[in-house]
């Protein structure tokens, strides 16, 4: 593990995972974050994932790409992903770069992100009672 303060944190919040990036990440740290998060979705049997990128200094092609991959992998594992906290400067740079988050939903901040998940994650009573993973 890297010494010093954690670069990212992945917290469990009910059926959701809240993943926060705390600092600028280089490419290999970004990939590790992806692997950790996808692994955690299985362990926690999460139905929704919020990725908070407010602390990222830039979202370049690799960063955006990785976020999209995470969202797609999470979807295949039965979880809905929403990205929150993209800073206005970062958003502008992403548009100029010709990059976006594609079909990955975004929300302004954590609160909006949670709201989004509440609306879009199917809570079947049976599944939540068992903490099950059935997505539909």
């Amino acid at each position: 593990m890297t010494p010093g303060p954690a670069l990212v944190s992945i917290l469990r919040q009910g059926a959701y995972l809240i993943a926060s990036v705390h600092t600028a990440l280089d490419d290999s740290q970004m990939v590790r974050f992806q692997d950790d998060l996808i692994g955690e979705i299985g362990r926690a049997r999460s139905r929704g994932v919020i990725i908070d990128v407010a602390a990222l200094d830039v979202l370049d092609s690799f960063g955006s790409n990785t976020l999209r991959s995470i969202a797609e992998m999470a979807r295949l594992r039965g979880a809905v992903t929403v990205i929150v906290g993209i800073q206005p400067d970062v958003a502008l740079a992403m548009v100029k770069l010709g990059m976006g988050t594609g079909s990955v939903p975004t929300a302004l901040d954590l609160e909006e992100g949670l709201e989004y998940l509440d609306r879009h994650v199917q809570h079947s009573p049976a599944a939540s009672a068992r903490g099950g993973e059935r997505s539909r």
Partner: peptide, 20 residues
Amino acid sequence: RATDLTILATAVSEVTRNIV
């Protein structure tokens, strides 16, 4: 401006990644 700083940083990130 902060916006241009982020734009610059993004561009530097792209060309530096190409080197690596």
